Computed example of a mutant assay.
Amino acid sequence: MARRKKIYEGKAKTLYEGPEPGTIVQYFKDDATAFNAEKKAVIEGKGVLNNLLSEYFMLGLTNIGVPNHFLKRLNMREQLVRSCEIVPLEVIVRNYAAGSMAKRLGIEEGTQLPRPIVEYCYKDDKLGDPLVTEEHIAAFGWASPQDMDDILSLALRVNDFLSGVMYGVGIKLVDFKIEIGRVYEGDFQRLIVADEISPDSCRLWDIETGQKLDKDVFRRDLGSLTDAYTEVAKRLGVMPKTSAPMGKPTLIN
């Protein structure tokens, strides 16, 4: 079978033309990066775990009526998604101070915020994905005021869903990042959740111990990243609780 045409390759995923018009095959890589790709490694099994977990979260969003690009999982590393025009913003929802916010504002990491805070970063690796305001977004035409209302609504709905799911398995949702896509149906435009939702794009802490179960394990050299992601998958029922740690899978095409 001929290999699909590559559309784009990012730090954690590769996109290929889908089998039908308007579809894309999203392939999850084992590559791990941090600090704007200054730190890099290949973590065996990470792509498989992120594929399974992103499928779980996207299906959950579909079930509560939050539109997203997920169509179906194809195999252990690939999923079929709807093609969309990505809004050039990273949408970050923070429930607790951590990471760059804690450093930027001098807040002790782990401090609960008075309410969820939504931040926006302009998607540009060369610039380090700088923090921007709605004034910047409107002035440069990245999204309209109506788009921003819809993006805020989507982000908060995703936060409500993820917070509840994680709390139910003893995990604190500290913060997360999503991307938003535009799809067109005739003259009508709709915004949907795109990219992925996984421990790569969330901060997840064990409620009882504070143990980190996200990419900070890699950023801060806190142990095995696949063990952390596997723990999340087991708690959510995505993997059997008795399964062995994820190693390099054998894929059959």
Rank of each mutant, 00 (worst) to 15 (best):
G10E: 08
V81M: 03
Q189D: 08
D160C: 05
L152I: 01
S144G: 14
D150S: 13
V93D: 04
E85M: 11
L154W: 02
N51H: 03
D187F: 06
D187I: 03
G181P: 12
K39I: 12
A41Y: 01
V93G: 09
G170M: 09
S163Q: 10
K11L: 07
L61W: 15
Y96P: 11
P19I: 11
Y56F: 15
V66A: 03
L113Y: 07
L225F: 02
G170Q: 09
E185A: 11
Y27K: 12
G210N: 09
L225K: 02
L162T: 14
T230V: 13
P88I: 05
L156C: 11
G128K: 05
G247T: 12
T23F: 01
G164A: 09
C202F: 01
G18W: 00
L251G: 12
T62D: 14
A244T: 07
E109W: 00
E38S: 15
T111W: 04
M1E: 12
K126E: 15
L191Y: 12
R82D: 02
A155L: 05
V183N: 08
A2P: 15
V132G: 08
K39W: 00
V81C: 10
F57Q: 01
T209P: 08
D160A: 14
E78R: 14
L52T: 01
P88V: 05
Q211F: 00
I151H: 04
K46D: 05
R182Q: 09
T133L: 03
E135M: 03
G18H: 05
N36E: 13
E90D: 13
L127G: 06
Q79A: 11
V42A: 08
C84Q: 03
P130N: 06
I86L: 14
I180Q: 06
A155K: 03
M166S: 10
K126L: 13
M239C: 14
K103W: 01
V48H: 03
D216W: 00
L113S: 12
E90M: 03
L49S: 06
A37K: 10
K172F: 00
D175T: 10
L89H: 04
R3G: 11
K177Y: 01
K241C: 06
I92Q: 02
D160Y: 00
L59I: 13
E9V: 10
L59M: 13
V238F: 02
E90I: 05
S100R: 07
I117K: 06
V91P: 05
A32R: 05
Q146W: 00
T33D: 07
G110W: 00
T133E: 03
C84Y: 01
